[in-house]
Simulated assay, not measured.
Amino acid sequence: MRLKLALALLLTLGLGACATAAPRSKAANKARSAAEVHVALGQRYMQQGKLELALEKLEKALIFDSSYVDAHTVIALLYERINDQRKAAEHYRRAADLAPRNGAVNNNYGAFLCRTGKLDEAAQHFATAVTDPFYKTPDVAYANSGSCFLHAGKFDRAEQDFRRSLEHNPSNGESLFNLATVLFQKSDFLRARAFLQRFESLGVANPDALLLGHNIETGLGNTREANEYARRLRTEFPDSPQRQKLEPSTPS
């Protein structure tokens, strides 16, 4: 499960950061409106895969208003997509400088830092994100933080973050699945099964979950249940890498 940083999240960025801002002049408001239009166009072109046009629109947005947080975040996403990590980092950092207490902005920057291997810095931004009283999805920041520590092999901290995520949103699928993964890694198979079952109750069938279910039931010594997960994985996702990870001796 990858860290959550979808374009849909951008729709809420910057709103909290502007709530207490000083009154803007008519010219500034006009510039901001133009920037918003160009960011919306940039997002649309990104979704269509027209990245050169998207970059053009986003650069124009920043010409109109270089203090527009969403413009920095969207162009950072674009630079990440075209593998320009230096410029992506520059714009994520600028967004965080402009909105230092904004939950969504800090969550996005933390996710980027985690993807680039800067665990300690990422943790600081995730911690800042969840202190924003106006941030509507702290469960996402906790889930991202947990994923960061999970991939670093720090299972106790990852478990803590996933549990905090589920306190805020008991139906956060990423946290349910990843908490099951953490508990499996810690050989706590019974609790791993419980969280995987909660994940499965959301109706999300994917090869990662089926493979994890197979491995959990194998750890518990439940051959019949393990074989049922293996059968489903072979039937529903026959060409998946997860299917290839099954033991060759597992019955069909």
Rank of each mutant, 00 (worst) to 15 (best):
Q85Y: 03
L246Y: 05
F126N: 08
P241S: 12
A152H: 04
G49R: 02
A54E: 08
L196D: 00
P133Q: 00
T131K: 11
D97L: 11
T131D: 15
S67A: 13
L5S: 13
T137K: 04
A158E: 02
H91W: 05
A230Q: 02
R191I: 00
E174D: 14
A19T: 10
L55P: 14
P248L: 03
G14Q: 00
S252P: 14
A143L: 10
F134N: 15
F149A: 00
T218W: 07
R157G: 08
G49K: 00
L7A: 05
G42Q: 05
L41H: 07
D208N: 09
T218H: 02
E217P: 11
L210P: 05
F189K: 00
N83E: 13
L11C: 07
Y109P: 06
F155W: 11
R24C: 07
N102G: 10
N172T: 01
T137C: 00
D139L: 03
I63Y: 13
L77I: 09
E80V: 04
L246G: 03
E59S: 11
T223G: 09
R101W: 06
R86Q: 15
N169R: 03
A76Y: 05
Q242F: 03
L190R: 12
D188H: 04
G153T: 04
L210C: 06
D239H: 11
N169K: 06
K186G: 08
V140D: 09
R157F: 10
F189N: 02
L211V: 04
N169L: 10
V105N: 08
N108Q: 14
G219S: 01
L210M: 07
R224S: 13
L233G: 01
L179N: 02
R231H: 11
N108G: 13
Y109W: 08
I63Q: 15
R234P: 11
K60W: 09
H72E: 05
S67Y: 11
A21S: 15
D70K: 01
Q85E: 14
V140L: 12
N107H: 05
Y79S: 14
L15G: 01
D161S: 12
G110W: 04
A22K: 08
T235S: 14
V74N: 00
D156K: 02
E121D: 14
N29E: 14
A158I: 07
A152M: 01
S171C: 07
Q160Y: 07
D132V: 08
T218F: 03
S25Y: 06
S66M: 05
L3H: 03
T250P: 07
G219W: 00
G219F: 00
I63H: 09
S249F: 03
N108T: 13
G103M: 01
N215P: 02
F195L: 09
Q197E: 15
L53D: 15
A205M: 10
F162T: 04
N102W: 12
D208C: 01
S67M: 10
G14F: 02
S67T: 14
A129Y: 08
V105W: 04
K26D: 15
N172C: 06
A123D: 14
A230K: 03
D161V: 02
N227A: 09
E225Q: 14
C18V: 15
H72S: 03
A209N: 01
D65G: 05
A127S: 12
E247F: 00
E228Y: 07
R231F: 14
N169H: 07
T223N: 04
S147A: 12
V37W: 01
R81L: 12
L55R: 12
D188N: 08
F199M: 06
A19G: 10
S240G: 02
